[in-house]
């Protein structure tokens, strides 16, 4: 074995070796100091980690106490809140707080939105994941990203100024503010969400499964629809749940395009008010800070929060399960 000749230049050796020996022999940095700093930093990190728990706690606390003040009011009863479909908090004489009117409006808009976003989103995801040639992918992905990044107030404008006139042109029964227009806009808004989450789920399905099916002579359609989609089903369901939660909580579109008349109707041509729409109405009007109608905003928010939390929680749990299955 030959010795490494770069070491063979004698001029530097004694010199540099001695010097570096001295440096390396010097006392090292105080470990105590390093440890102390480490502890402080760790404490800061933990504090910021706990901050997110604090936010959740604060949301629940705030909504709960204000909702309690709402129910304490003489004008409100549980039976009225949970049993009535008349939401009429502002008119003096005939106040009624039947949350079902708002829930119904929310459901209607969400249903319309989802009947657009779920099928289109899923099919686009299948296309992107299983079919699309690279060129199409390179166009479609940025388009979806742009659609996802557009502020919701812009979709509201689109609904009010473009979708509604088109609907009215198609059928004269549509009123200026209507559930269909808002629902369609919310659907467009949710489409990228569904698509990218569902595509993630499809991509997570192991290659081997596809190859196995192709090896048996399956067509692309067979592989996508009969093999990949069932394998990714829980991931897709989670994508759907998260998209529904997003639609339920969507605010500006419905505030602009759905109207402000709370009514329990299934007619998409009518105007409806959603839970979020009511909150915007309260915030943009001049309402005294302490009346029952002010607190009703919190009761509605609490209902909304419980609904979306349940959806996202289940969605996230399903997604986590799904990921564990394939990773």
């Amino acid at each position: 074995m030959s010795s490494a000749n770069s070491l063979a230049t004698p001029t530097w050796r004694g010199d540099l070796d001695d010097r570096v020996g001295k440096y390396l022999g010097r006392s090292h940095r105080s470990l105590k100091l390093v440890r102390g700093r480490e502890t402080v930093i760790y404490a800061i990190l933990i504090a910021s980690g706990l901050f997110s728990l604090l936010i959740t706690g604060a949301i629940i606390y705030v909504l709960a106490i204000e909702t309690v003040s709402f129910f304490k009011s003489d004008e409100v009863t549980f039976a009225n809140f949970f049993g009535s479909t008349t939401w009429n908090p502002l008119l003096g004489g005939t106040k009624s707080f039947g949350i079902w009117a708002l829930i119904c409006g929310t459901m209607l808009v969400t249903a319309i939105a989802m009947s657009i976003a779920l099928p289109l989103g899923l099919i686009t995801a299948i296309y992107l994941s299983e079919y699309a040639p690279r060129g199409v992918r390179n166009v479609l992905k940025p388009v979806l990203e742009v659609l996802a990044g557009v502020p919701t107030v812009v979709y509201g404008f689109f609904a009010l100024m473009t979708i509604t006139p088109i609907l009215q042109w198609l059928h004269s029964g549509f009123s200026v503010y209507n559930a269909a227009s808002a629902g369609i806009a919310v659907g467009i808004l949710c489409l990228p969400t569904v698509c990218s989450l569902a595509e993630d789920a499809l991509q997570a399905v192991p290659r081997g499964l596809r190859e196995g099916a192709y090896g048996l002579g399956a067509t692309r359609f067979d592989v996508s629809v009969k093999v990949v989609v069932p394998a990714a089903l829980s991931g897709i369901i989670s994508a759907f749940l998260l998209a529904i939660a997003r639609a339920v909580g969507e605010t500006m579109i419905v505030a602009l395009a759905a109207g402000s008349l709370a009514q329990a109707t299934l007619d998409p041509r009518q105007q409806v008010q959603t839970m979020t729409g009511f909150m915007v109405q309260m915030a943009s009007g001049d309402v005294s800070n302490y009346g029952t109608e002010y607190y009703s905003m919190y009761a509605v928010a609490f209902t909304l929060f419980v609904m979306t939390l349940a959806l996202t929680m289940v969605g996230n749990l399903v997604r986590r399960r799904f990921r564990e299955a394939y990773e």
Partner: peptide, 10 residues
């Protein structure tokens, strides 16, 4: 996943 309007109330 919490709707942003809820953060507004918070």
């Amino acid at each position: 996943g919490v709707p942003s309007v809820v953060y507004g109330l918070l």
